[in-house]
Amino acid sequence: MNYEIIVSGFGGQGVLIFGEILSQGALKENKHTVWFPAYGPEQRGGTANCTIIIGDEEIASPISIDPDIVVALNQPSLDKFEPWLKKGGLLIINKTLTTRKPLRDDIKIIEIDALTLAREAGEERATNIVLLGRLLKEIPLLSVDTVKEVISVIFAHRGEKVIAANIKALNTGWNSGD
């Protein structure tokens, strides 16, 4: 099957990178994938979001109207995408930047104080990676080793320290449910 994922947040929260890590990982594991950003002025301010599709079937539409997974990094993203989720879908929320509880009772909901966890991991900018870690724990879209390899490549230009902190953030996210 194919998983459809929407990741959304403020510009600068690493929403697009979150998606790119998933798609690069899917490529490594020889799965079908597409990474489709909402582009243009939306990138700045407001909500930035991207759709990622991963799976073993050919991907036709790059647009997801009833995603299996929504990752909301801020309140506007929760407001916008919670109603889109497929019944039984997974909603992961960055509790640090949301002001209300989700409304639906027909989905699985996970709330994480991702910014605090990212700070604990030593990389404040890794909120997105904490959420990614938790997503992988809930649904094994890709192996964690693959994702770690991708993180090492994507952050290579920012040095070993940043890579290590992001991998720590990924582990922190993974362990946040225990």
């Binding site: 798609s23 489709f36 950003p37 991907i59």
Partner: peptide, 10 residues
Amino acid sequence: DGALGQMMEP
């Protein structure tokens, strides 16, 4: 168009 243009695929 920009949809195909901005999209990444393998």
